[in-house]
Design a protein around this nucleic acid. Structure first.
Lengths: 116, 116
DNA sequence: TCCATAGTTCCAGAACCATTGAACTATTAG
DNA sequence: CTAATAGTTCAATGGTTCTGGAACTATGGA
């Protein structure tokens, strides 16, 4: 991941509407949520929301899939993971307090050494 | 941490100059770096950089401490940790693939259960 | 005190972002 | 085909952000 790429993702999250959408999608999991439900849940006009969903999609942080009349949005979790790693790069060199290990496995986190 | 707070921190990172500063400060660790060194390292005019450092400071992502003629900037790692936790809240409910455990301890990461 | 160095603040212009009404496309039901 | 529902796109507006020159403050050395 490059700086400009990271800026795009961070920027897509650095806005109240989009961050709220992100959090709803975290909770929704792989089932996702359609634009209309997001619009109703947040009380934001659908055209405004559409603008922000496009922004999230452009940052490749969400996927959009048509399902009948609705369009389902889902988080791209891999993208988030890569961003976190990028932000914390080199954190173990003398700064273990900042190090973020790999995401945990199926049911619980596994022991892991800092990659130094 | 609240939405508006998270937006402030994310926004402070969502800009090329500031993200580069952040990464330099991650590497610099608790010794930090002074404004002048950051300016030289990134080739950015000191007034422009000062604007961005103020932004990072306002987001409480960096600390500023005067040392003689220089001002040393250091990352506030706790702030970053809280942000990550906020972003990943509720991720374990059926979505362990996204869960980010607590930061690792002194020299290596410790085993950890997902807080579900 | 005078000068150099280190940073910050102020300002103005250009670029960018968010919001909304109105018009548009796409899908499904009757 | 027509109507209803679900979303997107467009254009205009108002607001915010980024940048860099110039002027400013603060510290330390001669």
């Amino acid at each position: 991941m490059e700086i400009s790429d990271a800026v795009t993702v961070l920027n897509s999250l650095a806005q109240p509407v989009r961050l709220q959408v992100f959090r709803l999608l975290v909770k929704a999991g792989k089932e996702g949520m359609c634009a209309g439900d997001l619009s109703r849940a947040l009380g934001i006009p659908k055209n405004t929301l559409s603008f922000h969903l496009k922004e999230l999609n452009h940052a490749e942080l969400v996927d959009a899939e048509r399902e009948g009349r609705s369009i389902i949005y889902r988080l791209r979790t891999e993208r988030m993971r890569v961003l976190m790693q990028f932000l914390m790069e080199d954190c173990c060199q003398g700064r273990p307090d900042l190090c973020l290990p790999e995401p945990c496995a199926e049911d619980s986190c596994t022991p892991q050494e800092c990659a130094s």
